[in-house]
């Protein structure tokens, strides 16, 4: 198949970026979207031109390192999908595809489609953990946790930290990301001891990083590759309000 790519090229955070056009012939429709970009990069490299910088690692939808805005949507038009899991068979022959980096002031562009998401790590550093050091753990089965509770904690814990929620939110809010971690740990008995401090510290860090507030558009849930529910945000708000009372 043939496609025309309009790719955002930007040297660094300070430079102005612009779309460049790259016609692509002979794209295998079984190839993934990123394999199609590999093909572009290989042809640019042979010509001695700088390839398009983009992040990707596992290419199985689990590491959360890839992520770009494709035709205006985070990770493209398929639901519950990372960029690496998008395949060319879901595009039309002859289509023009616009590719941009995740845009948020808390995600400065490093180059082209690569952005800096360390702000998400700093939210975890602020409190996204249970303080149990190596050696202090009790026997695992001494803490029974109901099947449904464990499964529901898993649903929150499944977040891959890709930042698609931020990229799609009109406020660039990291609420879904932050809420997923707060909820995962608050649902488990092990995590309840520190629940109050955790909610306060993580929410505070989210604000410091310059992420916007949540105005309940629920766009984040739509674009989340792991289908993390906005109910996590409700739980975060509940945990936060319990903590400030």
């Amino acid at each position: 198949m043939k496609v025309t790519l309009k790719v955002w090229r930007q040297k660094d955070a300070q430079s102005k970026g612009a779309f460049e056009t790259y016609p692509m012939d002979n794209v295998n429709e079984d190839s993934s979207f990123l394999e199609m970009l590999d093909m572009l990069n290989e042809s640019l490299t042979v010509q001695g031109k700088m390839p398009v910088e983009f992040d990707s690692d596992c290419r199985e939808g689990i590491c959360g390192q890839c992520g770009m805005v494709i035709n205006g949507r985070a990770n493209g038009h398929l639901e519950g999908t990372t960029t690496c899991q998008l395949h060319m068979r879901s595009f039309k022959d002859g289509e023009t595809i616009y590719i941009e980096p995740f845009r948020a002031s808390a995600f400065p562009v490093i180059r082209d489609l690569k952005v800096d998401r360390e702000s998400l790590d700093r939210i975890i550093i602020a409190g996204g953990f249970i303080s149990s050091h190596t050696g202090s753990a009790p026997e695992a089965n001494s803490i029974p946790i109901g099947h449904a509770t464990a499964e529901s904690a898993f649903d929150s814990a499944a977040c891959i930290g890709c930042g698609s929620c931020v990229a799609t939110c009109k406020n660039s809010s990291a609420s879904l990301f932050t809420a997923a971690k707060i909820t995962h740990l608050a649902k488990l008995p092990q995590g309840q001891v520190e629940a109050r401090k955790r909610a306060l510290n993580m929410v505070k860090q989210m604000d410091i990083e310059g992420f916007g507030a949540c105005t309940n558009t629920e766009a984040c849930e739509v674009e989340c590759p792991q289908n993390i529910s906005v109910m996590n945000i409700a739980r975060m708000n509940w945990e936060f309000h319990k903590a400030i009372l």
């Binding site: 953990f129 249970i130 149990s132 190596t134 202090s136 753990a137 009790p138 026997e139 695992a140 803490i143 029974p144 946790i145 109901g146 099947h147 464990a150 499964e151 904690a153 898993f154 814990a157 995962h184 740990l185 488990l188 092990q190 995590g191």
Partner: peptide, 16 residues
Amino acid sequence: DQAVAQGVPFGREYGG
């Protein structure tokens, strides 16, 4: 034991 203490949500039976 260590992983459970950290909050790793391993699969569980209905008895917990």
